[in-house]
Computed example of a mutant assay.
Amino acid sequence: MEITFTGKRALVTGAGKGIGRATALALARGGAEVTAVTRTQADLETLVRECPSVKPVCVDLADWDATERALKDVGPIDLLVNNAGCAMLQPFLEITQDSFDKSFDVNVKAALHVTQIVARGMKARGSGGSIVNISSQASHRAFKDHAVYCATKGALDMLTKVMALELAPYQIRVNSVNPTVVMTDMAKIGWSDPAKANTMISRIPMGKFAEVEDVVHAILFLLSDKSAMTNGAFLPIDGGFLAC
């Protein structure tokens, strides 16, 4: 099954590293005009060196007004990937107001706001579009020290459903992918302890973590016309973890 994005304009948040960066590069290779959004200028600079056709936008999406200013002239967008996110892990009794607010600002509010900006343009043009939110298996399962993270991803999943319901009349589809641990450079550090890793892997029927490409391929499918009747869906990329 060949998927191409020639003539499409895509926006990817959290595009400086990991899944977001790989998605931005894959979309560009597939023919899309890509706008890459992240808060770290150095990451954008290396991304543009790797793929000069990418349009960089540096902004902290937790800042509502700054996001509005940064994206108001971004131009028409056909495809959106809400990938920006953070994980601030704390035992439940030690959760702080700051970590709670920051997590919801980035993981939920930013996805809502960026989608509002992009979807208004999609609606006005009448050409439809496709939006993919990057959620997690943590929206469906409880994990120690993940109370706030789990709550944000649960909220994002429900936001995905409501977006799908309200935007579908304009032929705008909204779906999410829900990965297990994905072996980004950061995750390789966090899960390098075999004892910790094996505890999680033992709960995954396929006996391994996901690779970045596993998630990117799912995102590309949901963005493409190959999934034209898929709307409001959660796609686990978890080797069967949620099936247990």
Rank of each mutant, 00 (worst) to 15 (best):
I77H: 08
N82P: 11
E45D: 15
L80R: 04
E68P: 06
V57A: 00
C51E: 15
D60K: 05
V74R: 06
T46W: 08
N82F: 13
L80Q: 02
T46V: 11
S53Y: 03
G85W: 01
A66H: 12
T67V: 05
D63T: 10
Q41A: 15
L80A: 08
V81K: 03
N82I: 11
R69A: 15
V54N: 09
V59G: 03
R29I: 03
T46S: 15
A42T: 14
C86T: 15
A66M: 09
T40V: 15
R49W: 09
G85Q: 01
A36E: 00
L79I: 11
R69P: 04
A42V: 13
S53C: 04
A36P: 00
R49T: 14
Q41M: 11
G31T: 10
V48L: 04
C86R: 09
E33A: 14
N83F: 00
C58D: 01
R49V: 13
R49C: 11
V59D: 00
V74W: 05
T67P: 03
L47K: 03
A62E: 10
T67S: 11
R39Q: 14
A36V: 04
E45T: 13
E68T: 11
P76T: 07
T46M: 10
A36S: 08
P56N: 04
N82M: 06
A87R: 10
C58P: 04
K72V: 13
G75A: 08
R39N: 14
D43I: 07
L61V: 14
K55V: 14
L44V: 00
L80N: 05
Q41G: 12
P56V: 02
G75I: 01
A84N: 02
V48I: 08
T38A: 11
G30C: 00
P56A: 05
